[in-house]
Write a protein that binds this DNA or RNA. Structure first.
Length: 103
DNA sequence: CGGTTGACCAAGT
DNA sequence: GACTTGGCCAACC
């Protein structure tokens, strides 16, 4: 096993901890890793080599915006709605309620 | 090693 | 509420 994970891979590991029906933000992930590289987290999601394995659509912006999605941000919204997330246009409703926090 | 690239964030206008 | 600016940081070339 290779324990030397890139920052990207750490992001995927964190993301895997998020249960279905919950979401997280790029900032929260970066914070969980003890860094401020919010942008680098987004970069990791954009590459997302573990596409079906990692639910990259459960990551949103801190301000409640859905953010982006490699295959079309509309798809992302639809998937989130299916998981029970309330979305208005491109904005998450009650984000505080769905936001999952890492301990 | 220096410059570019972002699915970001916060504050200002 | 929409747009701009500056700051942040790892990966990539």
């Amino acid at each position: 096993m290779n324990n030397k994970k890139s920052f990207y891979e750490k992001c995927y590991s964190i993301l895997k901890k998020v249960p279905k029906g919950k979401i997280t933000t790029y900032k929260e992930i970066a914070n969980a890793l003890g860094t401020k590289a919010y942008r680098t987290v987004g970069n990791a999601m954009n590459k997302n080599p573990y596409a079906p394995n990692v639910a990259c659509h459960r990551v949103v912006n801190s301000n409640g915006n859905v953010g982006g999605f490699a295959s079309g941000n509309k798809k992302k919204i639809e998937m989130l709605k299916k998981e029970g997330i309330k979305i208005k246009g491109k904005k998450i409703q009650n984000i505080n309620k769905f936001l999952y926090r890492f301990n």
